[in-house]
């Protein structure tokens, strides 16, 4: 097991970022860490990287407590907004430093990518714009090829074209050298099809962990005349139901994987799939939200 969290708690003063997170990840997979802002994604990743010390519980990365473990930190890299590099080094020298620190670092790949994205390698890291900084960080993270590489909200502030290219490179490099890659975010645009597994955090706890395709299949969006939507929704778990136009409604419902939704022909109902982003957002919606899912599930029994 590469990554193990056992009842991990982390407090910042009085607020609790993680309140008993238990999570086990293994295998060379691309795993999505999803959750709303404040769900505990960044804290969990920073704990896994050894940057933060948990207030309670146990964490193990490659069999070691990551806090102050040279072994764990040499095999782990966290790419995040606060990632910083020695201030006196130009980007090219930073790549050299990374190469010395991480034996698997591919400087040639990193240099070619910087050139492709038009980032001058004689610039200083602090001179870069937010989008360029994140691009550089992600390039460094991909090229490092650490057995566990974590990207916390990596695509923020990037152009659509750059995002798309970076994800393509990430996938290609992952296929060429499989390793465990964690990608966190609350906006997923473009990332969601890369996930083999998804982990959904909510209020500092694990809400769901499983295969990404199966997770997506567990949801459907039905739309049509409000009365028909309500009737169909009464038989299943409903995460969200709202009127779109007068008399029309849309609902996100949970379906048993492997079953087809039975719908009367001519009722005007339409069923479409739900994107991963919409699914987890519906699952973690504050009002009603997961509490109502639970209530609906137990009521229908």
């Amino acid at each position: 097991m590469e990554v193990t969290f056992q009842q991990v708690v982390r407090q910042y003063g009085k607020t609790e970022a993680l309140s008993g997170l238990t999570l086990n990840l293994d295998g060379d997979k691309i795993i999505g860490i999803l959750g709303r802002n404040g769900a505990g994604k960044s804290t969990a990743l920073q704990i896994a990287a050894g940057h933060l010390k948990p207030s309670g519980g146990k964490v193990s990365i490659f069999g070691e407590n990551p806090f102050n473990s040279l072994f764990a930190s040499a095999n782990t890299l966290l790419v995040h907004e606060g990632m910083s590099f020695p201030p006196a080094l130009r980007l090219n020298a930073i790549l050299g430093e990374m190469e010395r620190a991480y034996p698997s670092f591919d400087k040639k790949l990193a240099r070619s990518l910087l050139e492709h994205f038009g980032i001058p390698d004689n610039a200083f890291h602090i001179q870069l714009s937010k989008g360029m900084k994140n691009t550089f960080n992600m390039v460094a993270g991909i090229a490092a090829r650490t057995p566990l590489t974590m990207f916390d909200e990596p695509l923020n502030g990037m152009d659509a074209g750059v995002r798309s290219d970076l994800l393509q490179v990430l996938l290609k490099d992952y296929i060429a050298r499989p390793r465990m890659i964690l990608l966190s975010g609350h906006q997923l645009e473009g990332m969601e099809d890369l996930f083999e597994e998804v982990v959904i955090l909510h209020q500092g706890r694990l809400l769901h962990h499983g295969n990404a395709d199966e997770f997506k299949e567990g949801f459907a969006r039905i739309s049509g005349p409000a009365s028909e939507v309500r009737r169909a929704a009464s038989k299943v778990q409903v995460l969200e139901l709202h009127e779109t136009l007068p008399g029309m409604a849309e609902a996100i419902i949970m379906v048993q994987p492997g079953t087809t939704l039975f719908m009367n022909e001519g009722s005007g109902l339409k069923s479409t799939s739900v994107s991963l982003g919409d699914a987890y957002v519906a699952m973690t919606r504050k009002k009603g939200g997961i509490d109502r899912v639970y209530a609906d599930a137990t009521d229908s029994r």
Binding site: I30, Q168, L171, D193, E196, A212, D213
Partner: peptide, 17 residues
């Protein structure tokens, strides 16, 4: 599965499925 994954930018496991 890897060719398909790269071509359609999806996880290789999805393509394998």
């Amino acid at each position: 599965q890897y060719q398909l994954a790269e071509q359609y930018r999806i996880n290789p496991a999805t393509a394998a499925k």
